[in-house]
């Protein structure tokens, strides 16, 4: 099944313009090509899980989707518009928000100050805090705590809260579960599902596949810079093992 088929399947009878579409994406670091023609479609209000072993090209794909890296070939479409080479800050202002691997919070600022950083995108501090504390009540208790002294899970919540403060239309999450306890990861992914139900499209990169499959509408498996399988998570169990263990399915 191709990504387009999946988009069509989730879109019902009439063709739905995908919120994000990567078509034939190639990318390289210097002369080393790491993506060899990647096709991924993210339909509106859906969670797409991008899975694969270390070095498969997942984070590079996410960087291209967020405009942080320019593909050497292929097209990035957002809401049907060709946006190759658009500035990442311009995309972020429009609602394409990335939560990077390692959270990307300011460790020496307090929770409130971290949230204030996102107000420069246009939202008021009150509105940002309201959204943050609604989704993550624990952050309210830590509002004056220096972010670097919080637990890994709380830091990830802060990163997510900051992303939600921008009121994104497309959320790009990189390794949400990195270094976190399974219970926290489950909590975060439940929230991801909740955010998607509010109309936000989410592309989530995850190395630990089982955690994200429960909330994803579509799973994309990557290996060696190529998409090896696309489809509903329930249909990709076999391919998943093959991708991670390197055995043919």
């Amino acid at each position: 099944m191709s990504p387009t088929d999946v988009a069509g399947a989730t879109g019902g009878g009439s063709p739905v313009v995908p919120l994000l579409e990567l078509a034939g994406i190639r990318a390289a670091y210097g002369r080393i090509e790491v993506l060899h023609g990647v096709d991924i479609t993210v339909p509106p209000a859906s969670v797409v899980a991008l899975l694969g072993p270390n070095g498969a090209g997942k984070t590079t794909t996410l960087k291209i989707a967020g405009g942080q890296m320019r593909p050497t070939a292929g097209c990035v479409h957002i809401s049907g518009r060709h946006v190759n080479g658009a500035a990442p800050d311009a995309l972020a202002r429009l609602g394409v928000c990335t939560v990077p691997e390692g959270r990307g919070i300011f460790p020496n600022l307090t929770v409130r100050e971290n949230l204030r950083m996102i107000t420069y995108a246009g939202a008021s501090q009150k509105r940002v805090e309201e959204r943050a504390f609604t989704h993550f009540p624990r952050l309210r208790e830590r509002v004056n705590q220096v972010a670097g002294t919080m637990s890994g899970g709380e830091q990830q919540m802060l990163a997510m809260a900051r992303a939600l403060g921008t009121e994104p239309a497309l959320l790009l999450l990189d390794e949400l579960s990195m270094g976190l306890a399974p219970l926290i990861v489950e909590e975060l992914y439940a929230l991801v599902r909740d955010i998607a139900s509010q109309g936000v499209s989410i592309l989530v990169v995850e190395q630990f596949a089982r955690t994200v499959l429960g909330v994803a509408d579509i799973a994309v498996i990557m290996a060696h810079g190529e998409v090896t399988a696309v489809g509903p998570p329930s249909e990709l169990e076999a391919e998943l093992s093959a991708a991670y263990l390197g055995v043919p399915s």
């Binding site: 919120l19 311009a90 609602g95």
Partner: peptide
Amino acid sequence: MTDVSPIDKLESGVERLRVPEPR
């Protein structure tokens, strides 16, 4: 902030987005 939905904001925004043409 206005009450425009994030999707509408994105759709109208990308229409106006300056994208450099390929060299």
